[in-house]
Amino acid sequence: MTALLQLSGLTKHYALRRGALDALLGRPAPALRAVDDVTLDLGAGEIVAIVGESGSGKTTTGKLVTVQERPTAGSIRFEGREIAGLAGQALTDYRRHVQMIFQNPYEALDPRYTIARSVMEPLVIHGIGSAGEQRDAAHAMLEKVDLRPVSRFADAYPADLSGGQLQRVAIARALVLRPRLVVADEPVSMLDVSVRAGIMNLMLSLSGELGLASLYITHDLAVARAMSTRIAVMYLGAIVEEGPTETLVSRAAHPYTRLLVGAVPEHRPGMRRERVRLKGEAASLTAAPAGCRFAARCPRAQPVCLDTPPPRVAVAGGHWSACHFAAEVASG
């Protein structure tokens, strides 16, 4: 079976500004390695979460998949077809099948558009259906995201809606084209817990109902756990561990993942946990790491970690970690 989406060796470097002196001396402009050699598969109907801190490259990965950015190297295959170089009509067609949900619901909709018009817009862009059909489709979609009664919302403006309601509209807009893949970038991080749960449940049930695959980007492990069947953890542009959600959360095989799981503030009945004590400074995103990119902060780092990049070590079926000591880490 070929995966719906296959990323291999996906890389995105942003050229940084060169100082005047460097330019004079002919030194090359430094590059910010936002995404560095990312390989990841996503099956049809599957939800994979990408977890990482700010600056780890998760949003850039999402932008590459939705062709808001072009990769520096590597390939993106959708249903077996290379999309990295798509342009023109072929790109527009691809965009029909791959939609995006953004983080900030308060900016997600044009303030001058009514709710129904925003939801209809993708149909208008792709010239699908008559005006009447577009309107009906938008109303049906609003119904699906539980904005009921639809008549109350369809002609309202974004300013009249709460954050949770706006995010529901954004979901309706993303799904109105019936895409096969949705990239959701922190869709609930700006919402309150009570509202957040509603949006998460809605996304889960719609994915099931429409057979939708999702790339769910988040900094929050708890949210990733609730939403996904598989998790990929990113650190400084690279995936450092990938595995089935429950395994990764309970038996992480990478020291960074262990640290992340341990840092989640939570009420843990009858137990006081160690707080995180970070050492060192995070490695730079501009220099290619000589050894393990986590070595500077890793509590288990050994001399080998400083000069030899760790390979992908398979820990179990579908679970791997980019660590020289993956097996030891996994076993506790």
């Binding site: 817990v193 957040r196 449940n201 756990r225 939570e266």
Partner: peptide
Amino acid sequence: ALLAALPTVTGPRRELVSI
């Protein structure tokens, strides 16, 4: 209700309930 809406990493995985 707030607690029922809270996803967890260490606790048992359960269905979230929104308010």
